[in-house]
């Protein structure tokens, strides 16, 4: 268990002097991202809610992207995945990503089909 830490984030754009300093840096970054999410969630800019991409509002895509960014920094810097061996990191990260993407795909695709059945079927649901 080597205790050396990789001290740079944003692909080396930002380099910290000590591990403690890096932790605070990451906290600032995560707080900013959460703040952006909350502001967007409350203001809901019209441009972002009126346009869609692959059936979902642009705003929701932004939320998901920001969430993944946050997840990345929590896993890489708080859970120290950045300092682990490549093999461990890949096993931990890609296994769920593969399984979850598959799960999301089949469930949402099926749900969309059921939605059309509800909408176009001959049975009324709203009474």
């Amino acid at each position: 268990m080597a205790h050396e830490h990789k001290l740079e984030i944003f692909r080396g754009l930002l380099k910290f002097k000590s591990n403690t300093q890096k932790i605070w840096g990451v906290l600032v970054f995560l707080t900013i991202v959460t703040g952006v999410e909350v502001v967007l969630g409350i203001t809901k800019p019209y441009v972002l809610t009126s346009n869609t991409f692959v059936g979902m509002k642009i705003l929701n895509w932004i939320f998901i992207a920001l969430t993944l960014v946050k997840a990345y920094y929590i896993a890489w810097d708080f859970m120290h995945l950045r300092d682990e061996k490549n093999s461990l990191r890949r096993a931990v990260v890609w296994t769920p990503i593969f399984l979850v993407s598959y799960l999301i795909f089949i469930l949402l695709y099926e749900a969309d089909y059921i939605y059309t059945v509800f909408r176009d079927g001959f049975v009324t649901w709203d009474f």
């Binding site: 769920p96 979850v100 799960l103 999301i104 469930l107 749900a111 939605y115 509800f118």
Partner: peptide, 25 residues
């Protein structure tokens, strides 16, 4: 443990997505 627990939570959230897309309107 974390990976398997992550899959459990993903199952919950994905089924939430399922119900939501089903009643999207």
């Amino acid at each position: 443990f974390i990976v398997s627990d992550a899959l459990t939570f993903s199952g919950f959230l994905a089924s939430y997505g399922f119900s939501r897309f089903k009643f999207i309107e």
